[in-house]
Design a binder for these strands. Structure first.
Lengths: 352, 352
DNA sequence: AGGACCCATCAAAACGATTCGACGTGCTCC
DNA sequence: GGAGCACGTCGAATCGTTTTGATGGGTCCT
């Protein structure tokens, strides 16, 4: 018990060489069933639990680990069911590849104050940047310097990184067209953060010109693609219900109240919906509300959000496939997933 | 680029021995500032990004990784904010120890159909079983066979495992006393799963006798400690809002409607609350509702659940400390965290 | 001036496995 | 009956680092 039993011990006990014992476990290479069972029996009596992963890893040069870099606080990152579902798909996907999932907090502050040392030192064969990596992210730089292959999700991709994303611009265009067809003309939008400075409130034109995060930018552009010019672009610092509620209160109690509000996430949209209920407004009678992501939010009952569904589970699996491709030495590619508009109970004809 | 540069290369370039180069990086042992910078410069020009973790790990015998075993599906496990917050606390805590967090799916089906191979093969220095491990869990058995030190959270502990838990029995007693003091006599309870068979609905006495999961058992016992004998014990297969709603509908539309409902989690309680609203019942006028965990649920606005607060973040940190202790070779202990009753807007005097 | 230290450096031995090439067998085929 | 072949086994090298014990030169003390 004190000194862990090693493959050499097992080999000695079984009366074979270390290499043969190794073959008995790995199954690679020819070995007679007789010796194989002999080795396995010896392992059994010695309480040997299979080859030490550390030794195997060093020799093979592979850690068997995929580093998943999430936002600086897990609590904040995982408060959004979107992340969870993607992570779930990813986990099952890479598990079937025999890989483990290392969770790495990684602030992408370009000030590079203090980079999580794990990013630089932890053993990982591939890294997945789960949200909106920006090109100036120090995490990205550190990983690239280490030569770790990178999969970026919904961000801006650098040379040689794989990218997985959805058609969010198209999705938003669909919502815009849907609302226009219903006769809406005064449409406001509640957006995801433009930048990491935590700004909250209506964005002035100047702020709209340089948006750091791709997601907010693309989704806003999608709305414009439909020909919708939002009366107000209300920015939030995170995708949280309470921030949606705050935005909803502000937008819905203004004198020139919009007839429709499009939020860039379902969590924000549900906040807006709660604000509308709170103000005694009928949805969609007085105001239509649409979101993005296609989450299942039971506590919104009996309402069902009109939203753009993205295949979150599939997204995770696709990330897993990208990981496998990179490990196999294939060239990194960009894959874009389809989305679909699903009309719920929260959008209807514009009030006359 | 093809063959990764190694410490030996750096040493050669700097004109020193490998051991000296190692010292330059690790900082252990004496080394002159001059040679140190010389080595670091050589590393810089060669693009060497510090010692290969795999080599270091093999030599030191430590992977620098804590395996966190969660339920069989991340999506289901992390749907509850409770888990997220604990994980967040744990992540920051072990990060400060310089350790990484390996997420491992682990079904604890005692049938042992197919154990996640990661449990048996992945490199980890300590394992944390995040929810309600039962003593017959094959995951537990596999880890113990490997000789991996184990921290169990809210489960039944085996010999030699550390255990972190909260005073949930006391917490439930507090809720029971609170309701009794308000004059409630017909009190029903909505519970977490007793077992993993997915049963849903009122539990008959037979079922109450063998409850596999500690949490449900202890929380139910706490209510009884207060002298409350629930009129109905409504079991749910998971801590989900919609299951709470279903339970609430059933309990609140029955002829001998209870005047108070205690749920074993805030998510369940909020579901019950939604059901009450749906049925047009006044809370707490017609029925009082209490939960457990102390979550911040903004979408319940303007209601605030009466609940027992448990220090989730602290819990995560405490798990981290237990991990550190085990790594330092200290003897595993059991730590129990305090809880406190926080009265919200959802409980009031029993209707006359 | 000589001996006792001390400090920086180095060589070599782990750490635990995988894998390549070599080496015997025992068999088949001509 | 001899040459060739396939199969199973083994020895040795290798992965990249850390760490221990030894070595050498310099400094300080007596």
């Amino acid at each position: 018990m004190s000194a862990r039993t090693t493959l050499a011990d097992v080999a000695a006990a079984a009366g074979v060489s270390v290499s043969t014992a190794s073959l008995a476990f790995s199954g690679a290479g020819p070995i007679s069933p007789a010796t194989r069972t002999k080795v396995l029996e010896a392992a059994g009596t010695l309480g040997y639990q299979g080859p030490n992963p550390l030794g195997r890893q060093l020799r093979s040069g592979r850690a068997g680990i995929v580093g998943v870099v999430v936002g600086d606080s897990l609590r904040r990152s995982f408060r959004d069911p979107v992340s969870i579902q993607v992570l779930d798909g990813l986990a099952t996907s890479i598990e079937s590849l025999g890989l483990g999932l290392l969770l790495v907090r990684g602030s992408d502050e370009p000030g590079a104050e203090e980079l999580n040392p794990l990013v630089a030192t932890a053993a990982m064969d591939v890294a997945v940047l789960l949200w909106g990596a920006t090109t100036d992210s120090p995490v990205l730089a550190a990983l690239r310097a280490r030569g770790v292959p990178i999969v970026v999700v919904e961000g801006r991709v650098g040379e040689g990184d794989a990218l997985i994303r959805i058609q969010d611009r198209t999705g938003m265009r669909l919502i815009g067209e849907h609302l226009l067809a219903l006769g809406h003309r005064r449409i406001a939008t509640v957006t995801l953060p433009f930048d990491r400075d935590g700004r909250e409130g209506p964005a002035d034109p100047a702020r709209l010109t340089h948006m750091r995060y791709e997601i907010a930018r693309r989704r806003l552009a999608g709305l414009r693609d439909a020909g919708v010019e939002p009366t107000v672009v209300y920015e939030t610092p995170a995708s949280l219900v309470e921030l949606g509620t705050a935005a909803g209160r502000a937008l819905l109690s203004s004198p020139d109240r919009p007839t429709a509000i499009v939020a860039q996430s379902d969590l924000l949209a549900s906040g807006v919906l709660l604000a509308a209920r709170e103000l005694g407004l009928s949805v969609p009678g007085d105001v239509s509300i649409a979101g993005f992501d296609g989450l299942d939010l039971p506590w919104l009952h009996p309402d069902v959000l009109t939203s753009v569904h993205q295949p979150l589970q599939t997204k995770g699996e696709l990330i897993g496939r990208a990981v496998a491709d990179l490990l196999a030495g294939k060239k990194p590619r960009t894959r874009t997933l389809d989305v679909s508009l699903v009309v719920g109970t929260t959008t209807g004809p514009a009030p006359v």
